[in-house]
Design a protein around this nucleic acid. Structure first.
Lengths: 224, 224
DNA sequence: GCCCGCCTTGATGGTTCCTTGACGGGCACC
DNA sequence: GGTGCCCGTCAAGGAACCATCAAGGCGGGC
């Protein structure tokens, strides 16, 4: 199921959107201002953001800039302003699409689907990544080792998923911290060690001599 | 310069678009019907397609489907139809964006920029530099020699990467020091010798008679 | 309200890597 | 042949980084 973050300061509209989106199979989280939107984007890992311009605390463009600083997560902007430069500005800042209020629900749904599809397309994304005795099913968020299911915590999964999507490639430490914990955690390298150790204990035959979750000191981690 | 393929059967509109786009720095090729649009997309390698629905020969949705069969090239649909399902249908078929006529030129330009940026951002920069038995994969940060992986430290990698990005060219000592250690280290030439030696020990068959990591005394280093 | 799972944080010990120094060789020039 | 310069090599100390264990705190589920 795809997850969408709805950012809107009008409770009525936010609730209406949430109900409609849930009815169409989306998992919905909401935020009422820019600050909590940025937090939620980092903490909830949505697949797409619906962003209403004109929030109480931050300008909508600041929210876009704040997100684009660390993620390419698709953003669909929602606005009542029919004319003017803000549409162009939002797109140039890195928004992915723009819908004018009032809008037809099925149009918004189509644009969300398009945004998510685009963002996922470039990852050729076999939904199951195999590494030795490990099978990582990205779509179902499941991992098995020698055929037996392995239970992971949300953070462990997020870490492993990132490595799996770049299987065979070295993923830099900063990228792991940014994408798993959020942009404010780029220097919390201790987390990496703790979670790498936890994953190894669950996934490796000999956790102290890992063969699949490999550390490159000072650089990052590789799944192979 | 970015190249755009404009598909429109009205010569007047097509010409107006082409002039405007060229004025904003785009390289423009045009097609007046669906069949030639598909050919042009294959032959001209545009960065983005602007597609007017309602062509004489093929339905616009068929053009989208025809393109999506083999490429993920971004498509911006142009249409006069204000309402109805075709907007949703076009997006779901794989169009990347949708602009309704009449439209503001700067909006179309912004959407084109956004579409191109999106399509290029995730391009994983598949560049592998080969020098004799060495293969240097810049994206994966991996080096192999005769097919076997070679482990490098962060500083060694940074040094080698710089040389690999300028393979065959002499990289001045000062540039190496600046880009690997930072601007304050421009005169620490000793570092160069130590790390050049370490790299040779890992990469060369006979480290004391290097064939790939070449020193030009007083000038700099070359990878070949 | 309690319990449990998970995240965070600290402490410790081991490893890797960077920096720095010392020494010898080749080369040009005097 | 001596001198100076630059390069290559080796080695050691210390800093940065990693692995592991464990405990406290927080929140969600019951």
């Amino acid at each position: 199921m795809n997850k969408v973050l709805v950012v809107d300061d009008e409770p009525a509209l936010a609730r209406a959107l949430a109900i409609n989106l849930r009815a169409h199979g989306w998992e919905v989280v909401t935020a009422a201002d820019g600050r909590s939107a940025l937090e939620a984007a980092a903490g909830e890992h949505p697949d797409v953001v619906v962003l209403d311009l004109g929030l109480p605390d931050l300008d909508g463009t600041e929210v876009i800039a704040g997100l684009r600083g660390w993620t390419s997560l698709p953003i669909v902007v929602l606005s009542a302003r029919q004319h003017g430069e803000d549409k162009v500005e939002a797109l140039d800042l890195g928004a992915d699409d723009y819908v004018i209020k009032p809008f037809a629900m099925n149009e918004l749904l189509a644009r969300l689907r398009a945004a998510v599809r685009r963002s996922q397309a470039p990852a050729p994304e076999e939904s199951v990544v195999v590494a030795g005795p490990l099978e990582i099913d990205l779509a179902r968020k499941r991992v098995s080792r020698d055929g037996a299911d392995v239970r992971l915590t949300p953070t462990e999964w997020s870490f492993l998923e990132l490595l799996a999507r770049n299987v065979g490639r070295l993923v830099p430490r900063e990228q792991v911290l940014r994408e798993v914990w959020g942009p404010a955690y780029e220097h919390e390298t201790h987390y990496l060690r703790v979670y790498a150790a936890q994953l190894r204990r669950k996934l490796e035959d000999d956790p102290s001599h890992p063969r699949h979750l490999i550390t490159s000191p000072g650089l990052g981690y590789t799944l192979q």
